[in-house]
Computed example of a mutant assay.
Amino acid sequence: MRYRIALIGSSGSGKSTLAMDIGKKLDIEVWHLDAILWKPNWILTPREAQKQIQSQLVSRKSWIIDGNYQSTLDIRLEAADTIIFMDMPRTLCLYRVWKRRLMYHNRSRPDMQSGCKEKIDLQFLKWIWDFPRKKRPQLQQKLADLGMDKQIITLKSPQEVKRLLDKLKDQV
């Protein structure tokens, strides 16, 4: 069976973890955009190269891709058959980002490019805090504008994530 799943949402919402869990359950390769688009020492791949990389990824038969990257989001949304919007509370996202920072202090996390040591700064925390007000409405509008042939799943709590994973387990 063919699956093309895009996971979007705030940093700390659980995109990468859910992508890995779904990938294991459905035996589909997972692509973490953070690991692909960031080079060592936090150097971001130029936008044109980002577009080329993602166009190649979405041309595959099946895939799971997690990441935001608003400037290239349409590539993934148009190619996906399923979009999972991780619409978690900002306090949970902030907690998870702090926890992740402590867990991976002075090293790269598994879903990140080697050479990108886990870090937090005020700008990043502000981005997460402002996500519900600034980014969520844009994402919701993009999702509303998509065709009816897309399955859009919005998850608002860890309990809803667990229910989705349990449902997948029952189907596989």
Score class of each variant (00 low, 15 high):
Arg96Ala: 04
Leu92Ser: 06
Gln123Val: 12
Arg47Lys: 12
Ala79Glu: 02
Lys134Glu: 09
Phe124Met: 13
Pro137Tyr: 02
Ile28Arg: 04
Met20Asp: 12
Trp63Ile: 03
Asp149Thr: 09
Gly14Met: 04
Ile128Phe: 02
Pro89Gly: 07
Pro46Met: 06
Met103Gln: 15
Lys150Ala: 09
Lys162Val: 10
Cys116Gly: 06
Lys169Pro: 00
Arg96Leu: 06
Val97Thr: 14
Ala6Gln: 05
Gln52His: 07
Ala79Ser: 11
Lys117Trp: 09
Lys169Ile: 08
Val172Arg: 14
Lys150Thr: 10
Leu33Pro: 00
Leu146Phe: 04
Lys99Pro: 01
Gly14Tyr: 03
Glu48Trp: 06
Asp149Gly: 04
Leu92Phe: 07
Asp66Tyr: 01
Asp166His: 10
Ile53Met: 09
Ala19Val: 09
Lys61Tyr: 10
Leu155Ala: 02
Asp170Gln: 13
Glu160Ser: 11
Glu48Asp: 14
Ile28Met: 09
Gln123Asp: 14
Ile128Ala: 00
Lys134Asn: 08
Ile65Thr: 02
Ile120Lys: 06
Lys156Asn: 14
Leu44Lys: 14
Asp87Pro: 01
Asp66Met: 03
Leu92Gln: 07
Asp130Ser: 13
Asn106Glu: 15
Arg76Phe: 05
Ile120Phe: 08
Glu118Gln: 10
Ser55Gln: 15
Gln138Cys: 04
Gly23Val: 05
Leu165Phe: 11
Leu155Pro: 00
Gln159His: 11
Tyr104Val: 04
Ser59Met: 10
Ile120Ser: 05
Met86His: 07
Gln140Val: 09
Trp42Ile: 05
Trp31Ala: 00
Ser13Ala: 15
Leu94Phe: 05
Asp81Ala: 06
Arg109Gly: 07
Trp127Met: 10
Gln151Asn: 13
Ser114Asn: 12
Leu122Thr: 13
Asn68Asp: 09
Thr72Phe: 00
Lys142Pro: 00
Gly147Leu: 08
Leu102Met: 14
Lys51His: 08
Leu125Tyr: 03
Trp63Met: 05
Ile152Trp: 02
Asn41Trp: 07
Leu26Val: 06
Asp111Leu: 02
Lys169Thr: 15
Ser55Arg: 15
Arg90Ile: 01
Ser11Leu: 05
Thr17Met: 09
Gln123Lys: 13
Arg96Thr: 01
Pro158Arg: 09
Asn68Leu: 09
Glu118Tyr: 04
Cys116Leu: 08
Trp38Ala: 05
Arg136Ser: 13
Lys135Asn: 13
Phe85Trp: 10
Asp166Lys: 11
Leu122Glu: 13
Asp111Gly: 07
Cys93Phe: 06
Asp81Asn: 15
Leu94Met: 12
Gln151Arg: 13
Arg163Lys: 14
